[in-house]
Design a protein around this nucleic acid. Structure first.
Lengths: 294, 294
DNA sequence: ATAGCCCAATAACCTTTGGTTATCACAGAG
DNA sequence: CTCTGTGATAACCAAAGGTTATTGGGCTAT
């Protein structure tokens, strides 16, 4: 008893005529005949009385007719629902949004995307960029708007969305606060406040120290952006943050680094993973967004 | 999207392993693979993520899984229902029961059948035996427990259930009431009370008159058994009824006919019609019933 | 490392089945 | 009493669903 048989049966019942049922189904009349016999044999019941003209539905046929219509309607509805996922009328995906990108770069993307696809849902996953990248690679998270780590973006799909310059953050009363720019060498002896392990900003900064042949004095680590700023303001150490993330009201002075140090913020995903259509739509949206804002 | 595909999909989801899903379904692993791809292509959605081990269900797959389970359950239930019709756990049929048979011959058959098949229903259709026979031939009624007409039972399936002798019914004060038996010749001048047209008893009696070369004086016709007896009792005319149908309390005297006149009561159906299993069961039951009461 | 294993994908092939055309048989209408 | 409409049947064909054999990628254990 399969759906095709039930559908044919319902049409036969509606047409009360094998020939016109066949026409409505765009198949030949013998196909109808054969299929109905097959269904009847499977059930061990006669569903249609061919002696009458027009053909009549038996009592058992009448019962099956109702059941068949219900089944077909349910299948129809299931198909519609699934089609909505395909057509981006429904759907959701997970996106890693570390604190830094969440505060400055994610909101406009989210707003734009939501405007284009109001019925799609994003589930935001917190976590550092590095940890998020690993989760994306392991396919635990569909995508992430992260700070790209210093190296090794091979094997992940990515779209750089923006580049930001890291600036030195000093307490307002710091002796070096007045400089036009600073090098890491000048800062080597300064205690540093960093993000925890698993955050890209930490590894980018450590990487920069290492490349300069220097070793930073890591005073303390946290994964709270506001905590870092507060610690710097209170003189616990210096730090390095994207210029956009610090403003005058923070009781922090920013000085450009020399040579400049940049971080790239962008979208990443696992190219081998089969992403939900909703997520593909978001990636595409971000792609367009970057192309248009160039 | 057919039932087979949905079933395979559900099993894959349950096993989270194509190979063991194939085993559970008694098919080969490539068949599973192929069918799932087909379903995914039809929907335009990835349902299973094969990158993970064990394979993981995607968000869309999770949605379809629920829908598919519902559909399969509904089909299952439909199959069960239809199977109950086949297995005589459900079902009904129509049976013509004219007044005479309804009063004396149908009740024991009904009781016995209902005992054997408590959940089957009969719908009793009223009407004369002749009219019922025609309705059965036209397949408007599945079967009938009727008085067989004088001739022409060809072309209908039938089981004679009992034979009854017709006796002359006279008002108690009738001059011929004391006779040991009576011939139609002796009764020719008597007004007769008969069933209406369409009732077998009428045509059997008219037939007997005709065969004896006589013409009855039909006083009045009715299709109410009790009315006939009342009319006879009041002296409106004589009548002929099965002996079993008249007793002493009726203020009617019965006298055997000479030569005897018999009516056969039995079951009839259209052998070309496809009867509901319930009706077939009843016919079979009556067949057994007669065989055992011989 | 690397050999071995698990497991899904793929290829080539076979069998069943759903569909086709042509034709028949039969009932009912003109 | 032929003609028309309609379902059944036969013979045949193409596609679908299934099979076995094999490949290849990712893990695990040595």
């Amino acid at each position: 008893m399969d759906l095709r048989e039930l559908e044919y049966f319902v049409v036969i019942c509606e047409e009360k005529n094998f020939t016109s049922a066949a026409e409505r189904l765009y198949i030949s009349q013998p196909a109808i005949s054969k299929t109905l016999y097959k269904l009847e044999d499977e059930l061990g019941l006669r569903l249609i009385n061919r002696n009458q003209k027009p053909v009549a539905i038996t009592a058992e046929g009448e019962v099956l007719l109702k059941l068949a219509r219900d089944i077909i309607a349910q299948v129809q509805s299931a198909q519609n629902i699934m089609d909505e996922y395909k057509k981006l009328k429904r759907g959701s995906f997970t996106i890693a949004v570390p604190p830094m990108t969440g505060a400055y770069f994610f909101p406009p993307l989210f707003a734009g995307f939501k405007k284009k696809y109001p019925s799609l849902d994003m589930r935001i996953i917190d976590g550092g960029s590095l940890a998020s990248l690993e989760a994306v690679k392991r396919e635990e998270i569909h995508t992430g708007l992260i700070i790209f780590p210093p190296k090794d973006m091979a094997g992940v799909g990515n779209i750089p969305v923006t580049q930001q310059e890291l600036v030195v953050c000093l307490p307002a009363d710091h002796p070096l606060a007045g400089q036009a720019f600073l090098s890491l060498q000048q800062l080597e002896s300064e205690p540093v406040v960093l993000y925890n392990d698993g955050f890209a900003l930490r590894s980018i900064i450590l990487n920069a120290y290492a490349e300069a042949g220097l070793t930073p004095k890591i005073e303390i680590s946290t994964n709270q952006f506001l905590t870092i700023k507060a610690l710097v303001a209170k003189g616990a150490g210096i730090s390095f943050l994207p210029a956009i993330a610090v403003n005058d009201t923070d009781a922090i002075v920013t000085v450009p680094l020399e040579p400049q140090l940049h971080v790239t913020i962008g979208l990443v995903w696992n190219p081998n993973s089969f992403l939900p259509p909703a997520c593909k739509a978001f990636i595409e949206f971000v792609q367009d967004y970057c192309a248009n804002n160039k």
